[in-house]
Nucleic acid binder design. Structure first.
Lengths: 164, 164
DNA sequence: TTTAATGTTCAAATAAAAATGAACTTCACC
DNA sequence: GGTGAAGTTCATTTTTATTTGAACATTAAA
């Protein structure tokens, strides 16, 4: 709305590069099951020279305020962005946490772990359902239990390798 | 079409359990970025007492032949199902490979590795794009390279833990 | 306490992904 | 070669996921 520009805007060179980084993350987060706009927001913050406000992001990405707000909320929940004290009024600025483990760790914590917890329940129910104790079904349910257990063991290892 | 039933059909008990397993895999594969029908097919094969043909699956799941064909194709590509020599005519029967690593390994090989290879290219392009050698951009691109490298290291570890 | 800037929510619109089904290919068997 | 069962392909339809935008909060400053 206002014709006044925020500080960083004019000195920005290399908008090709910034665009590439945005696209890069847009694709990358899709592998993690997150929406494209979340990747674009994260990518924009990742490459930005200074923290950006919601309005900055909405303007740079030409996405709606609602989309931006929701995307930032998700990234905050994942722990992939952090708030920086805004100096002007109560506007909040965001910066990307640059570590792989922030984004990945967030996905593991918020998406994969809950899924595995749910799976544990489901498998228990299956066991209860197999009242006749059919040997074939027994064996398959046991195998499913092993799947889950093994997947559960994987996560700490993953997080360890994701490291610092 | 034909009113004649295939052998296994009548002795099937425990259709609740089978339904639960189908649903379980339908959800699980979504985490891996695969379509629901693929999970349903895999789940059906996973719990089935005998190998099933495309027609069997289409009937049990009430999905279209096209969907079934595409789903089986994907599962074959991933290495999560195998063909069993059909005795009747040239009809093919499928059975699930019951190991976690078949499905996961397939996803890693067919989806994640290609994505990482692509990422390597992209990062190279970014570097080329940063002709002024701006220190800030340099550092971010370097960090992206580290992400990719680390992710690449993760996969063999994953596959090792997925094990036998 | 009003105003205006900032941010959130959610029903509706849009875009993206998946499933359908009819046309087509292939091949075993006659 | 002709027939039909088996399987594939792909343009269209359906379903699901994402984005939008307008109404609604919240609060800093006047």
């Amino acid at each position: 709305m206002t014709p006044v520009m925020s500080e960083g805007e004019m000195l920005m060179e290399n908008s090709d590069l910034e665009e590439m980084v945005r696209e890069f993350f847009a694709e990358t987060v899709k592998v993690l099951g997150l929406p494209k706009s979340v990747g674009e927001i994260y990518g924009t913050l990742f490459i930005s020279k200074e923290p950006l406000s919601l309005d900055d992001l909405v303007e740079q990405l030409t996405i709606s305020k609602g989309s931006g707000s929701q995307g930032l909320k998700m990234l905050r929940t994942l722990g992939a962005v952090s708030e920086v004290e805004g100096l002007e009024g109560r506007k909040v600025f965001y910066q990307a946490d640059l570590e792989l483990k922030s984004l990945m760790g967030g996905v593991i914590r918020e998406k994969i772990r809950p899924h595995l917890a749910n799976a544990k329940e489901k498998i228990k129910q299956m066991d209860a359902c197999n009242e006749v104790n059919d040997a074939h079904y027994d064996e398959r349910i046991r195998k499913l239990g092993n799947w889950r257990r093994r997947a559960g063991m994987l996560l700490p290892i993953l997080q360890k390798v994701l490291g610092k």
